[in-house]
Design a protein around this nucleic acid. Structure first.
Length: 509
RNA sequence: GGUCUGUUCAUCUAAGGGUUAGGAUUCAAGAUUUUCAUUCUUGCCAUAGGGGUUCGAAUCCCCUACAGACUACCA
């Protein structure tokens, strides 16, 4: 068993965009596989036709690709165990269900949804919960409770029926979870789960076990919400006689809401203003968009980095990791047991780290199309220079714009708070004096302006802070942005002077 | 309700019986920058509660509390 090549699978169902928690599950699977030189398989679990959402599978593929999670085998890339879409494996599951029927581990059940509903509500009326199990199945309509002629008649009358697992009574099932240790369940609390639906499709439980076995999966790494069904799956492996090659199970802790209680959901993102999906998604019916990390300006390596640290840590104080590094050092033993609250603030910090590590020209390349959308055309040297000036204070390309738009268009308004704070009675006179002074400076660059300017201010006896802040107000319209002299240089002499004159005209009070 | 899992600063977490319980994010203060920001320094802040076991417990055991997941012919 330890000889087997590591093979893991990520098995989402195409019911919508891939959630951030799903991406993390995929990532941990991928890291685990790569760490052990194994394969990462994508399998689409589309056994529920009712919940199928067109475009979701493509979204999953694209999201994984953007993240840099490469798929060794999957519906788009093929592989020795194809097909990798459960709807295309439909024919296969029937025979396995029948194998269980034959060996006495499963039985036919003919109860209609209405009958089950009423059984549930009567139980509820008595303050109990209905469970289809060893205690109750003799009262239900199935091949165990009915005489053979009777249920065979039902079956041939094409009555809708399902195949249920015959859950043994009062048996302790113990199995090791790689991050939680051994967990024990007693089967008397479990129910006779449906394995095969009346529409001819298997349920998740059957399909997942059959496929994992057939695809030679060695490790099942999935979300904590699956922990309660681990005993069922173990029992299925036993019933099939596949216990020897049964995969090891690992259940990852959940990702929780930033505030309040419960697991992270799409609503939290809407409410607090951060994406919960890797890529932008437009609802096919309502057309309602959901933000994505990619479109919000995150770098995929930053996104992966922050996801990796959500629930896992290397035990050192390093926080920045490339995908390659993660593949080297990842281990399931260092995944925590408890749920991790998602912190949108820290995601920005991660992006900032990757942002400032990029060269000025790399950022410049990204800034150019951004400016173009705003009708501004600049050359790379200029874009590069601007990025160099402001990147330290930015997390995203969009923030470069926030910090530098005044270099491309003159301010039309002036921050009122700054005006009332800085624009004292003597300021207009100082500014017009300065406009004249600046007009005579040659040559025009940050260094050449700074010294004579400072000397002039000192000679005039003006307060430096007042002068600088007022000048900034004239040039950018507020109290932010990079070094004043650098702004002057980029603006050019005549624009600098004309902005001062314009401000003198527009700011009156 | 039942079953299972979990619980260290506001948040992510380290410390696998012996440390002043460490780091990061956020926040606050100071320094620097005669402008803006960066940067630097400092500060705030935690072992859910109660019992054991032990020379010694965040760490092992039990109870309580709280939280989460699951409890479909959904995955």
């Amino acid at each position: 068993m330890s000889e087997r090549k590591v093979r893991v699978r990520f098995a989402p169902s195409p019911t919508g965009p891939l959630h951030i928690g799903g991406v993390r599950t995929a990532l941990f699977n991928y890291l685990f596989a790569k760490k052990h030189g194994g394969d990462f398989i994508l399998r689409i679990e589309d056994t529920d036709q009712a919940r199928y959402v067109p475009g979701a599978e493509e979204y999953i593929q694209e999201a994984l690709q953007w993240c840099g999670i490469t798929i060794d085998e999957g519906p788009a890339q093929g592989g020795p165990f194809a097909p990798y879409r459960q709807s295309e494996r439909k024919e296969l599951y029937r025979q396995y269900a029948e194998q269980l029927l034959l060996s006495g581990h499963a039985y036919y059940a003919f109860d209609t949804p209405e009958e089950l509903d009423s059984a549930r509500s009567t139980a509820e009326g008595e303050g109990e919960t209905f469970t289809y199990n060893a205690l109750s199945r003799s009262q239900m309509k199935n091949s165990l409770s009915l005489p053979e002629e009777e249920w065979k008649a039902l079956q041939s009358a094409s009555t809708q029926y399902v195949i249920r697992f015959k859950m043994p009574d009062n048996l302790d099932v113990t199995e090791v979870d790689l991050i939680r240790g051994s967990v024990t369940f007693n089967t008397s609390l479990l129910d006779d789960k449906v394995l095969f639906k009346s529409d001819g499709m298997p349920t998740y439980h059957l399909a997942n076990v059959v496929d994992d076995h057939l695809m030679e999966i060695t490790h099942v790494i999935r979300g904590e919400e699956w922990l309660p069904s681990m005993p069922l799956h173990v029992l299925l492996y036993r019933a099939f006689g596949w216990e020897e090659t049964m995969p090891r199970f690992t259940h990852l802790p959940l990702i929780l809401k930033p505030e309040g209680k419960g697991k992270l959901s799409k609503r939290d993102g809407d409410k607090l203003g951060f994406p919960v999906f890797p890529l932008l998604w437009k609802d096919k019916i309502t057309g309602e968009p959901s933000r994505g990390y990619r479109e919000d300006g995150y770098f995929s390596d930053a996104f992966i980095n922050l996801l990796a640290l959500l629930g896992w840590n290397p035990g050192t104080e390093q926080e920045i990791f490339s995908m390659d590094e993660l593949c080297q050092i990842f281990s399931l033993e260092r995944v925590g047991k408890s749920g991790a609250r998602f912190d949108p603030e820290k995601t920005k910090w991660f992006n900032h780290q990757y942002f400032i590590k990029k060269s000025d020209s790399e950022l410049g390349e990204l800034l150019i199309p951004f400016l173009k959308e705003r009708g501004i055309t600049v050359e790379l040297p200029m874009a590069t220079k601007v990025c160099g000036m402001v990147k330290e204070r930015c997390n995203f390309v969009s923030e470069i714009w926030d910090q530098s738009y005044f270099l491309f268009q003159a301010p039309t308004t002036y921050d009122e708070k700054i005006v009332s704070k800085r624009w004292k009675d003597d300021v207009p006179e100082i500014m017009s004096d300065l406009a004249r002074f600046l007009g005579d400076i040659e040559p025009w660059n940050a260094l050449a302006i700074k010294d004579p300017f400072s000397a002039y201010v000192t000679a005039k006896g003006w307060n430096f802070g007042t002068v600088m802040n007022s000048l900034r107000l004239c040039l950018v319209g507020g109290s932010f942005g990079p070094d004043i002299f650098e702004i002057c240089e980029i603006l050019g002499k005549s624009e600098t002077v004309s902005r001062i004159l314009k401000a003198l005209e527009k700011i009156k009070n």
